[in-house]
């Protein structure tokens, strides 16, 4: 990689279907293919695998991989981490998702925007600033004393709110979140690069999961949609791949 990739960049577009084998072997094959596409200087540093429970794959089953860059974040020591989320869909029963992190040395990590990593400290701060300047969001949390939680590709983001004010947007608030809406990284990329805010469709399709207080989760429905509005505007600013499709006119709120 000579320049950082952007979230939304699709990988493995020309990949052939793989013969099913053990989940770990499949993940290893996919990691190698992605590594080759990203360049010889990258190295795999982590992989989180989740299958649909079909542990025993059938050798005759073909598995198609699809992959998307879901976050890019500079690390200390002039290293860049690129998160890639992969879906493996078998033509019969098997499916799995894998979240990979690849590392690469770079010359100057200051050149990489933290907006490329949803849930990073810089992304959280930018979102906090936007929400604080948004009178509509303030109205939506006017009667709320609590903490909205989301998790993007496993990265927690807590929104501590009190009477219409956003006190902080951080990875972990002192008393924790009232509820957490878990959004897989690739689902989040889809949310922020779609033509319009499809939060409700995504929730109704079961692509996000909530935990904690169901009451507060439902009560904060419009606030969550507004948060995604801002995340979409930030994706446009940061140049996420596909964000040029964004058509919403209600982004100019902050």
């Amino acid at each position: 990689m000579t320049t950082p990739l952007k979230p939304g960049r699709r990988l493995l577009a020309d990949a052939d279907a793989l013969a099913a084998s053990s989940p770990l072997s499949l993940a290893d094959s996919v990691a190698e293919a992605i590594g080759q596409e990203l360049g010889q200087s990258v190295r795999l540093v982590s992989a989180e695998l989740e299958t649909n429970g079909e542990a025993q794959t059938d050798d005759s089953e073909l598995v198609s991989p699809s992959a998307v860059v879901t976050a890019v974040l500079p690390q200390k020591g002039q290293e860049l981490r690129t998160e890639v989320t992969v879906h493996l869909e078998g033509d019969a029963a098997y499916s799995a998702s894998v979240r990979f992190a690849f590392a690469e040395a770079i010359d100057n990590s200051d050149d990489v925007s933290e907006l490329l990593c949803p849930g990073s400290a810089g992304w959280n701060s930018a979102l906090r600033d936007r929400l604080r300047e948004d009178s509509e969001f303030s109205t939506l949390i006017e009667a709320y004393d609590g903490t909205i939680g989301i998790a993007i590709g496993g990265r927690p983001v807590h929104f501590r709110c009190y009477r219409g004010h956003v006190l902080e947007v951080v990875a972990r608030s002192i008393l924790g979140a009232d509820f957490v809406l878990s959004i897989p990284g690739d689902v989040f990329v889809d949310l922020v690069t779609a033509e319009r805010n499809r939060f409700m469709e995504t929730a109704m399709s079961g692509r996000m999961r909530s935990s904690g207080s169901g009451y507060e989760y439902l009560r904060m429905t419009s606030a969550l949609i507004r948060i995604i509005d801002h995340a979409r505007a930030m994706a446009v600013t940061a140049g996420y791949v596909g964000s040029e499709r964004v058509l919403d006119t209600n982004l100019q709120v902050a």
């Binding site: 939060f199 409700m200 507060e216 439902l218 009560r219 429905t221 419009s222």
Partner: peptide, 13 residues
């Protein structure tokens, strides 16, 4: 909670 909001957003969806 937020019945009106949910009907509005759910219908749009």
């Amino acid at each position: 909670p937020s019945r009106g909001d949910r009907t509005y957003w759910g219908t749009r969806a």
